[in-house]
Design a protein around this nucleic acid. Sequence first.
DNA 1: ACTTAATATTGCAATATTACGATAAATATA
DNA 2: TATATTTATCGTAATATTGCAATATTAAGT
Lengths: 110, 110
Amino acid sequence: MGATKTDHFTDKHNAIATLAKALGHPARVAIIDYLLSVDTCICGDIVNKLPLAQPTVSQHLKELKNAGLIKGNIEGNAICYCIDEKAIVRLQTYFSGISGKLEKKKTDCC
Amino acid sequence: MGATKTDHFTDKHNAIATLAKALGHPARVAIIDYLLSVDTCICGDIVNKLPLAQPTVSQHLKELKNAGLIKGNIEGNAICYCIDEKAIVRLQTYFSGISGKLEKKKTDCC
DNA sequence: ACTTAATATTGCAATATTACGATAAATATA
DNA sequence: TATATTTATCGTAATATTGCAATATTAAGT
C-alpha cells in the first residue's frame, strides 16, 4: 500500500513522527545546519551549499516548512528562512524525556 | 529518481538523518513509547498494541534496529527489544545544541 | 514595459516505503 | 517427533519520496 495509517495513532505520536520525518533526509539536516550558521537570513545561497538542483532544494525547504521546522518571509526577491525554535524545543523535550525515563528504569536487558 | 544522494552529504548529517528517518513514522514512535512503558522486555505484545499486522510490526522493528535506535535479543521463543540509549542521547545532544545556538543568535527575522 | 534575478511549481522517471497475506524458521512443550 | 507459539522473510500491490529539466511566478532595477 505505502500509505501511512496516521488515523490509527495518537496525535502525539503523529506530531513527533512528522517532525522526525522532515529531518529524515541529509539535505534537510544540512539546511538546518546552514540556517544555524548564518547570521543574515538571506538564504538564497542554500542552493550553492548543497549538491542538489534548485527545484530540489526548494522542495526540501517546502517540506521543512510544512513540518513546522522552519518559517519563511518574502524579502524582496529573496526569501528569508529561519529555524522555528518551537519545533526544536519540542524535539529536545521529547528526547530528554525518553532519556530521563531510561535513567530511572535501568533494566537494560539487551 | 527517488534515491537519496547520501554520498554528497557529511557523515554527521547522514547519521542524524538516519536516526530521524527511523522515527519518521508514528508506528515507530509508538513502539519506542511502548518499550519505554514496560518494565519487562518480553515485547511480543507490541503487535497487540498497534493497529498493524504482525509482519508490518516486525518490519518496523527491523528498521528501528537497523537505525540503531533499539537493540534486541532472542529470549526463548520471544524477542526482547530495548531502546538503545546511545541513539537517544545523540539526538538529545543534537537538538539541545541547536537550541543553544538559537538562544545565542536571537536574530529572529521571520 | 522590459529585463534580470530569485524562488516556486509542474511533470515525469526512478526508487523507496508501507502494508499485509502466505509462508518459513526457530524454539518451547506435550 | 509432533504441535503450538512466536518472530522473520518473501512476494506483491499501493502509495510516497527524491531529483531534475522546463516553466511559471514574483519583485526589483532599468
